[in-house]
Design a protein around this nucleic acid. Structure first.
Lengths: 158, 158
DNA sequence: AACAGATGATCCGACTTTCAATCACCTGGT
DNA sequence: ACCAGGTGATTGAAAGTCGGATCATCTGTT
C-alpha cells in the first residue's frame, strides 16, 4: 500500500539531504575557524542583536532559534562564559530571565557577519540564478509553515 | 565591502534554515517513535541494503552517509548491539572491516521504510507541486555538487 | 487570601558527537 | 627484504545534546 518514491523523487530527496548536511557543516566550520562560533551561536547573537534592547526572554530566544529550552540554557551558559551574552533578571516576571547581548558580543557579531554572509553567498546564493534561489526559498517557506503548523500538540486529555 | 543579503534573500535564507531544521527533526522523531531508529541509523541501513551482499566497507559507508569515520564507528557499535548490523573482516585487506546488514536489520528496515516514506511525502513531497519539488531537487543538487567539489584539501605543504 | 494548576528556566543523567591519538596493515622505493 | 609513509578503522576523553524532573513564580478561581 505504500506509495514509494519514484526514481526521480528519490534523486531529489537525496540531493536535498546531501545539500542540507553539507551546507550546514561547511558554514559552521568556516565560522568556527574564523571566529570561534558555531552556526547555533551565531544565530543566537543575530536574534539578540535584532531585538529591542538587544535582549530577549530565554523562551522567546529558544523559539526563534528552534532550539529546545534545555539546549538553549546550556548554549547561553557557554556564550556567557565567553562574555558574548549576559543574563539579566526579568522586570515583571521574576521567573523569567533575559539573555542580553554584551558589548563584546556585539563586536564579535559585527566581525563575524561578513564571514557568514560571504559563506552563504559562496555556497548558496551565488550558485543559483535569482529564479532558482527564489524557488528554493518559496518551497522551504511552504515546508516550514506546514511543519510549524503541525507541531506536536504536546498532550491531550479527554 | 560586504555585499549584504537583500531583504528578500534573507527571507529565503531563513526559510531554508527553518525548513531544514524542522524537517530533519520531524522525520527523525517519527522514525524514532515508531521504530527506535534515528534518521542517521536509517540512512545506514538503507545504504547497506542497497549494496551488493548488503555489505560495505566502513569508509565507503561513512562517505555515503556523510559522517565522519569516528562517528560512524560509534554508530555502528550501537547498531551492532541492537543486532541490526554486524562487522566482518575484509577479504583482501586485513585492515578493513565490512559492515553487514543482519537479517534482523533487514526486517527492521522493511518495517521502517513505509513510515519514512510516508513522512517524506507528508512533510515534503505532497506539499509541493511536481514542478516545485523538482526545482528544489535541482537547486539542492547544484549546492551538493559544489560542496563536494570544494571539500577541504585536508592539508597542503609548500 | 489561599490554592491548584500553568509557565519559565535550570539541572541531572543518559546518550551522542567530536578531536586527537593510536594501532594494524598495506604500498612503493631502495 | 626492509623501511617510511600512507591508509583503514577504532578508541578515549571532552564537549555537546536531550528528555524528564525539579524549583520558583505567576494566574485564575473560589
Amino acid at each position: 500500500m505504500t506509495r514509494w518514491l519514484s526514481v526521480e523523487q528519490q534523486k531529489h530527496w537525496r540531493a536535498y539531504i546531501a545539500a542540507t548536511v553539507l551546507l550546514q557543516d561547511r558554514l559552521s566550520r568556516e565560522l568556527q575557524a574564523a571566529h570561534g562560533l558555531t552556526m547555533g551561536d551565531y544565530e543566537i547573537l543575530v536574534r539578540l542583536s535584532e531585538a529591542p534592547g538587544r535582549a530577549l526572554r530565554m523562551s522567546q530566544l529558544a523559539e526563534h532559534t528552534l532550539a529546545s529550552r534545555s539546549r538553549l540554557s546550556h548554549q547561553v551558559d557557554r556564550l556567557e562564559k565567553a562574555d558574548l551574552v549576559r543574563r539579566e533578571a526579568c522586570e515583571h516576571d521574576r521567573r523569567g530571565a533575559n539573555a542580553v547581548l554584551t558589548e563584546h558580543g556585539w563586536d564579535v557579531l559585527v566581525e563575524a557577519a561578513p564571514t557568514h554572509v560571504a559563506g552563504v553567498r559562496t555556497h548558496l546564493v551565488d550558485l543559483l540564478s535569482d529564479r532558482e534561489f527564489a524557488a528554493l526559498g518559496k518551497a522551504c517557506a511552504i515546508l516550514a509553515d506546514h511543519l510549524q503548523d503541525t507541531e506536536t500538540p504536546v498532550s491531550e486529555a479527554s
